[in-house]
């Protein structure tokens, strides 16, 4: 579903991703962990070209998205993204946040979009908030709206960039719950997170990144219980 070949990314002279190769299968939940500055967020942002890559290839469903001829907007419409800072549109209500892209990008008529949005709001447990503005929501509610907004485009893949890092501890659970539900439904997901419990419980595969490389990848049980590399052990000893 996603194939990454020798991905490199530099910001000026600072090489953040040094040589990343990875294949993600349909319906797989891949959790990316690693110390801050290891390049995991940058890696995720490369997957929908929010960062222009320096070298290498990324294929999504066989399409080379790094090819200049590829319509990146079409790819992005099929790859949902959830941000650490939610990035809801503050001038629009919850409902308007969700229906905007389906109406403008997919040219969906308003009625259909609203119907779909209400279904999604029910799914994330926020039906009663559809006419609220983002500012009146708690962090956890905002993030659930952001997930619903991404899902409204009916993406084939969902990318999560530290979705719970900006949340108060008591709100982390409600967001993870929605993500678990999504994983259960068979969504292909790439999740950058510090929630090791989530990685263990939901992840099909855990990737440990450090210094711009994938140091180690394995099933959650293997990686957490039996890490092979020193750096992995060191990191896990700090976070577990």
């Amino acid at each position: 579903m996603i194939r990454v070949e020798n991905l490199k990314k530099s910001f000026g002279n600072n090489e953040v991703l040094k040589d990343i190769s990875l294949t993600i299968k349909p319906q797989e939940v891949v959790v990316v962990i690693g110390p801050s500055g290891s390049g995991k967020s940058t890696f995720l942002r490369c997957l929908n070209l929010l960062e222009t890559i320096t070298d290498g290839k990324i294929y999504i469903e066989g399409v080379d998205i790094t090819d200049k001829k590829t319509d990146i907007n079409k790819i992005r419409a099929e790859v949902g993204m959830v941000f650490q800072q939610f990035n809801l549109f503050p001038h629009k209500t919850v409902l308007e946040n969700i229906i905007l892209a389906p109406m403008k990008v997919k040219k969906m008529d308003r009625e259909t979009a609203v119907k779909k949005a209400r279904e999604l709001l029910r799914k994330v447990g926020l039906s009663e908030k559809e006419n609220c503005y983002p500012d009146s929501l708690s962090g956890g509610q905002k993030q659930r709206v952001a997930i619903a907004r991404a899902l409204a485009m009916e993406p084939k893949i969902m990318l999560f960039d530290e979705p719970t890092s900006a949340l108060d501890p008591e709100m982390v659970g409600e967001v993870l719950e929605v993500m678990k539900q999504l994983a259960k439904e068979g969504m292909t997901m790439v999740v950058v997170t510090h929630e090791m419990g989530f990685a263990r419980e939901v992840g099909d595969r855990v990737i440990f990144m450090d210094g711009g490389y994938i140091v180690e990848e394995n099933t959650p049980e293997e990686l957490f219980n039996n890490p092979q590399h020193e750096r992995t052990k060191l990191f896990l000893s700090k976070v577990l």
Partner: peptide, 23 residues
């Protein structure tokens, strides 16, 4: 306007012009 607004709009598949106009 926060950079995240443009990123969120683009990540939903909007063109640069659409993101400018609606967001």
């Amino acid at each position: 306007i926060d950079r995240g607004q443009m990123e969120a709009a683009r990540s939903l598949g909007m063109t640069h012009a659409q993101a400018m106009r609606y967001v």
